[in-house]
Design a protein around this nucleic acid. Structure first.
Lengths: 160, 160
DNA sequence: ACGCAACAGTTGCCCGGTCAACAAAAAGCG
DNA sequence: CGCTTTTTGTTGACCGGGCAACTGTTGCGT
């Protein structure tokens, strides 16, 4: 595979028309869960909690609802992740005084202290699984995947 | 975006460095489950059973173990999918006479009758989610994803 | 002020998939 | 042949994430 993106793509060893696209997606995603959780568990975390934790490190005092919207997560998923983070002592949850329906999240000092390590672990996984691609291919993969994901989100209204 | 694969990729609306790669994978994969199951349920099927069913349509009398190996599925997942297919009347399970540990799977006539429709539904989903990509981009995406998945499978031995 | 619709969060349940433990059968070895 | 190791399938538990139902709160229209 020469430098840059070629119009001719080699067929990877496990790639065939009989292995569905979704299966490949699942293989990668499951690898993510397993690999990440192996490293996160000793820290008292699970992978579902990582996006919330990292998002809060970039700016606190966010409602669960805004996090759900940001990551395109189901509200229930965010609630559970936030609860887990609270129970582990990494996040403080406070009812919004101006809107008693809303819960606002803040990192504790224990949570803050964890952020560099979680960032490293997170980044490390992405580097590892894309290490077989050159930089342009990596960018291409990210972009194409993002566009497919975008179509899925747009397609939600067409599912009925 | 001109025809063919360009070295410059547009940034999709939801694409940003703060949305992790894994989240995009999950968005697509969850869309797959939801969309497929919406259509499969009225037929008495679930998406987890589709690979098994379609593989059997290409050649029957396969052991569960060979199916697990082929799709890189966990044995338990295949056993459960096969069981579901049997209970729905689409598959017959028989203990291998030459190796009493092994279970061999055969499509019933009801199962055979279902295959064209399942193929259509399956193919339709892939077409839909990649419709925002031109043919070269689709090929690129498939190839890149396959290579990433391949790395994950190869990387399994490095997880310890 | 009141009633209704919309919203934020909680919780139950479901699904897809994995790891692990286990039992039974087969293979391998001395 | 007997014993040990490996193999195939089963099943429990766990995890990530979605949908749906529900509760309490807020916003909106009359």
């Amino acid at each position: 595979m020469s430098r840059g993106v070629s119009l001719v793509y080699p067929i990877p060893r496990i790639m065939s028309t009989e292995i569905p696209l979704a299966r490949h997606l699942s293989i990668v995603l499951r690898h993510h869960y397993a690999t990440m959780n192996d490293q996160l568990r000793p820290l008292g975390l699970l992978v579902a909690q990582v996006p919330i934790l990292l998002r809060l490190s970039a700016g606190q005092n966010l409602t669960q609802e805004s996090l759900a919207r940001h990551f395109h997560f189901d509200k229930g998923a965010v609630a559970r992740a936030a609860r887990g983070l609270e129970e582990a002592g990494f996040v403080r949850r406070e009812v919004d005084p101006g809107d008693r329906r809303a819960v606002r999240l803040f990192l504790t000092s224990a949570g803050e202290a964890l952020v560099p390590e979680i960032r490293r672990i997170n980044r490390e996984w992405e580097i590892r699984v894309t290490e077989g691609l050159d930089p342009e291919e990596q960018a291409a993969f990210r972009s194409l995947l993002g566009r497919v994901a975008s179509t899925c989100l747009d397609g939600r209204c067409c599912r009925d």
